[in-house]
């Protein structure tokens, strides 16, 4: 099944308010350091980058490494400036790419 993502952005906010954003995505985050049953290393398969944009402007970026847990959960804050769309993208090994968007109304 394709990657599942759960994101939590308040649907409404006041202008200038600090809003909390939470994101969770299903990914095994295979480190590349673990051997399989025959002693061969399981190839690394991780998400390498997470980016959040607010109306096209980047507000948060994170680099992920092999020590990040499976199904990474990222929580951060930003300033509510105007109504629009908050978009999150995850990209990584083996051409992994996932994106989620949510609308926010700022009054």
């Amino acid at each position: 099944m394709a990657a599942r993502a759960l994101i939590n952005v308040p649907p409404k906010a006041k202008r200038g308010e600090v809003i909390g954003i939470k994101s969770l995505i299903s990914h095994e985050m295979e480190t590349g350091f673990r051997p399989n049953a025959t002693g061969q290393l399981i190839p690394r398969n991780i998400i390498k980058e997470f980016v959040c944009t607010y109306n096209g402007v980047e507000v948060f970026r994170a680099e992920f490494f092999p020590s990040v847990s499976a199904n990474p959960f990222v929580s951060f804050t930003t300033l509510a400036t105007e109504s629009g769309t908050i978009t999150m993208t995850w990209s990584g090994d083996n051409g992994f790419f996932a994106t989620e968007s949510v609308a926010i109304t700022v009054e």
Binding site: L6, N8, L24
Partner: peptide
């Protein structure tokens, strides 16, 4: 807090797959 919030509870990823 992770369990209480359905968008932070990783178990919900499986629940969504289960619904499919």
């Amino acid at each position: 807090a992770m369990q209480d919030d359905d968008t932070a509870n990783a178990g919900m990823l499986w629940v969504l797959d289960g619904e499919t």
